[in-house]
Structures are given as C-alpha cells and as structure tokens.
C-alpha cells in the first residue's frame, strides 16, 4: 500500500520545479558560492574573496599578503581537495534533481531531500573546519602575534578580526543552492500532503 503511494507520480508543477532547480544547480558549478569580505578604512574599495566550487576568486593575493603578518597559511586552491570533487558532486545532484523531475516518483523526491540536506550539512561542517584551521593554525614565527587572538572568520555574518571586519555570506551560487533546497522542501511537503490526503 505504502509503496504504491510513494511511487505515485508527482504533480507536474513539482516536476517543473525540480527540473529547473536541477538546471540551476549546473549553473552553481560555475558561480561563486560563498563570499568573504574584509572591511577596513584603508581598503575603501573593499577586499573580497569568492569561493567557487572549483577555485578561489577575488583578491586572494592581497588577502594572503595581509595574512602573512599574522602567520595565517597561504590560501591556495591546490590545498583543497574539495575543489576537485565538488563540481562533480554538484553535477550529480543536478542530475538527481532533473531525473527526479523526469521520473516523477514521489519516493525519489524524499530521497533527494534527505541527500540534499545531508550534503548541505556536510558542506557547512567542512567549510567551518577549514575556517577554524586557517584561523587557528598560525605560524609561531609570524611578525604580529596577539596573545589569545584567533582569526577565524564567521560562517555567516560578521566579526571584527583586529583591524578588519570580516563579513561572510553566501554568494549567488549559494543562494541558488539555498533556493533549490527551499523549493525541494516545498515540493516534498506538498507531495507528502497530497499523498496523505489520498490515503483512504
């Protein structure tokens, strides 16, 4: 009985949402997902770093130049295994979205939601651990050592780090990701309600 319910085809509106979301996720591969801004009076033009699925963008060189005073490790794409696998993972999710839309199985929608939330959590934990690592593992021979000071930027929001205000928010890719998550949740909830209503 349950199986029949879950294998029922989903609404065409939801199919459309899932397919469009899947296509949007492909775009995320090429778009900046997260951004960290550093704000200080002497950088009126701002200092920004963009995190893509496969690289770092923005004024990474300048930020590295500043970080060397406090002994922070040099930020370089080669150090992140994530940059080699993340585009594929996102592509897999994009395909999963589109397939779910095409196959229109309710069960797949639930599965996708679970997998997507899991991915979101793992990604954020991974991001946090990198921020922690860069903020705390400092070169003991650095020119500037402020006792007790760590330089971990916030996951989201802002934080004063010495003379810089670090501001961290999702960028366009991140927002698409979040939007996909919200839409997927909506589809799942809506489908779940339909399924429940159809129960005798």
């Amino acid at each position: 009985m349950t199986d029949v319910k879950n294998q029922q085809r989903i609404k065409s509106l939801h199919r459309a949402i899932l397919i469009i979301s899947g296509m949007a996720l492909f775009a995320v591969i090429a778009l900046p997902i997260w951004r960290i801004e550093l704000i200080a009076p002497q950088y009126p033009e701002g200092l920004e770093m963009f995190i893509y699925s496969y690289k770092l963008g923005g004024q990474v060189e300048i930020i590295n130049g500043l970080n060397h005073y406090i002994g922070m490790k040099v930020l370089k794409a080669d150090d992140f295994i994530e940059f080699t696998v993340l585009p594929y993972i996102i592509a897999v999710y994009a395909v999963f979205f589109i397939l779910t839309g095409l196959l229109a199985r309710r069960k797949l929608v639930y599965l996708l939601l679970g997998a997507f939330i899991l991915f979101g959590i793992v990604a954020m934990v991974d991001f946090y651990s990198w921020l922690y690592d860069y903020g705390h593992n400092l070169d003991p021979t650095a020119p500037i050592i402020v006792p007790g000071m760590a330089y971990q930027p916030p996951l989201i929001g802002y934080k004063q780090l010495l003379n810089f205000l670090a501001f961290s928010i999702p960028d366009i890719g991140g927002w698409i990701f979040i939007a996909c998550g919200i839409l997927l949740t909506y589809c799942s909830v809506a489908e779940w309600r339909i399924a429940r209503q159809k129960l005798p």
Partner: peptide, 13 residues
C-alpha cells in the same frame, strides 16, 4: 532573507 543579509553588511568607517 537575501536582502536582509545584504542589509546586515556593516557600514564602512
């Protein structure tokens, strides 16, 4: 939500 995050952006000195 998106615009709130933008509004949170601290003002430059």
């Amino acid at each position: 939500m998106a615009s709130t995050f933008q509004a949170c952006r601290p003002k430059g000195a």
